[in-house]
Design a binder for these strands. Structure first.
Length: 150
DNA sequence: CGTTTGACTACGC
DNA sequence: CGCGTAGCCAAAC
């Protein structure tokens, strides 16, 4: 499978990050992966090619009934990655819609409206994680920039 | 042993 | 935009 050298701690980190995703908001495998530094011994270029899959694998292994809101993680195209028609895929979409997340006719979620900006900088620093890459086509501005909008 | 199969993505038509 | 493909790895057949 697409797994890191030491899957257990990697998976735990993924799940801890996913627990931070607010209700009614979605993240992606790649965005979550972007917060996790490369494990020791894994070349950065190789890591970048595999990490999103590693996250996908971690999500597949979320224990049934856990408190991890796995349904809030979709792929970079804004669609549900679980094979269409499977029971889990239906559950995922139903849960998201229950939280107010909307899907367009093509089954895609608009990241500008529902995409996650990641945990606070403090939380990330406290957990030794990196700032996530943005899902928005118009990334959130910092405070100084936002003032200019008025 | 060779093939298939994954809850991925960026990139090129 | 939608769709195919390369990149990459291991386990299960």
């Amino acid at each position: 499978m697409y797994q890191p050298p030491d899957p257990a701690p990697f998976n735990e980190t993924v799940w801890e990050i996913v627990r931070q995703i607010p209700e009614g908001i979605v993240s992606t495998y790649g965005q979550i992966a972007s917060m996790i530094p490369a494990p020791l011994g894994v070349p950065p270029d190789q890591y970048e090619r595999l990490r999103a899959r590693w996250v996908g694998n971690a999500m597949r292994q979320v224990p049934a009934g856990s408190d991890v809101p796995w349904h809030r993680v979709i792929n970079s195209q804004g669609t549900i990655s679980i094979p269409r028609g499977s029971a889990s895929a239906d559950v995922q979409r139903a849960r998201l819609e229950m939280e107010g997340v909307e899907f367009d006719d093509a089954g895609r979620v608009d990241f500008d409206r529902f995409g996650w900006d990641g945990p606070s900088a403090d939380w990330l620093a406290a957990h030794g994680l990196l700032p996530p890459r943005s899902l928005k086509s118009r990334p959130p501005h910092d405070d100084a920039t936002q003032l200019n909008l008025f």
